[in-house]
Simulated scan of single mutants.
Amino acid sequence: MQDNSTSVTDVRRHGGRVVAIGISAIVAILMIATIVLLLTLPDANAFNERVEQLFLENDTLTGQAEIKLLEILAQSGTAFADTLASYRMVILVLLVFATGMMIAALVFLIMLVALNRRMAQIERSGIQVNSLLISRDEKTVYLNNMGFKLTDAAMETLSVLAEARLDDEMLSGVEIESVISGKSAIDCEEAAGATRIKRLRDSLGNQMVSELLVKNIARKGYMLAIDKDVIKVL
């Protein structure tokens, strides 16, 4: 028995944990990135304020060359402020992009939750029947595009059940036998209808097991038609 074997239930449980962890991680990363950017980005006017302080503290800087140098520093401060403003715009665009990515991730996680719920429904209901086609001419019933041959009696029983289901009706064994045989319900027995249902189940069930579970390999033998990693023996 392998430890890494999984089942639909395990996948569904892990999927729920991934959703919670994923949402928390996305929100945490975005918040941390925003805080770090705001704390580390310098003030755009810091350079200009420093140059202004130099003007105020040094009254002796009256030479033409010194004044020219201070003007160059002031212009550099203005350019630095403009550069930081452009950086802020780039950061804003990146944050908007990150928000869009977070929304896309949330949509993906919601789809994952919906898929997990769908898998849970399939697990509870067993084989999910998406289509049922009854072909009287071929004496075949197509269940989810898988064809199964039935006897005439089994075809009649399945047809009666299908018509009753279309009308949202429930039939007893007496009513099934009466519809198929054409006799009055008074002359029919519950056991006769139950026998027809049993034969239908046996015929259809055996073929479904052969199609989905037990595979017959010509001249070799039999084996289960499933992945070995999903097998668990308790």
Rank of each mutant, 00 (worst) to 15 (best):
Y87A: 06
L61M: 14
G63T: 08
I91T: 02
L73W: 02
I67L: 15
L69N: 08
I91Y: 00
L70G: 03
V90L: 06
S76Q: 10
T62M: 10
T60H: 15
L70E: 01
L94N: 04
M102W: 05
A105N: 10
L69Q: 14
S86M: 07
D59V: 13
A85L: 07
L73F: 03
L70T: 03
A98M: 13
F97W: 12
V90R: 03
Q75E: 13
A81K: 06
G63W: 04
S76I: 09
A79H: 11
F80Q: 04
I72C: 04
A98L: 14
T60C: 05
E66P: 03
D82Y: 06
A74R: 06
A74F: 04
T62W: 04
L73P: 00
A65N: 14
L61D: 05
A79D: 12
V93D: 05
A85W: 02
A104Q: 11
I67T: 11
E66S: 14
G100L: 11
A104K: 14
A79Y: 10
E71V: 11
A81F: 03
A65Q: 15
I67M: 07
S76K: 08
A98E: 04
V90A: 05
A74K: 10
L73S: 01
D82G: 04
A105Y: 04
M89S: 08
S86Q: 07
I91A: 02
G77T: 02
Q75V: 09
L94V: 07
A79S: 13
M101S: 12
D82F: 07
I103Q: 09
L73N: 01
T60N: 14
M101Q: 14
V96T: 11
A74S: 14
E71N: 14
I72H: 06
G77I: 02
M101P: 00
L61P: 03
V90C: 02
T60D: 15
E71H: 13
F80E: 02
L92E: 05
A79M: 13
A85I: 03
M102Q: 09
D59A: 13
V96A: 12
T83E: 06
G63S: 05
D82K: 14
L92I: 06
V96D: 03
V93M: 14
M102S: 07
L61T: 10
I67S: 03
A105F: 10
L73G: 01
T99F: 12
R88H: 09
M89G: 02
A105M: 13
V90K: 01
A105R: 05
T78P: 02
E66W: 10
Q64W: 09
L95C: 03
G100M: 08
A105P: 01
M102E: 08
R88D: 05
L95H: 10
R88Y: 01
L61R: 11
E66Q: 15
F97K: 07
M101G: 13
T60Q: 15
V93P: 00
L94S: 03
D59E: 15
A105H: 04
E71W: 07
F97D: 05
I103S: 09
T60E: 15
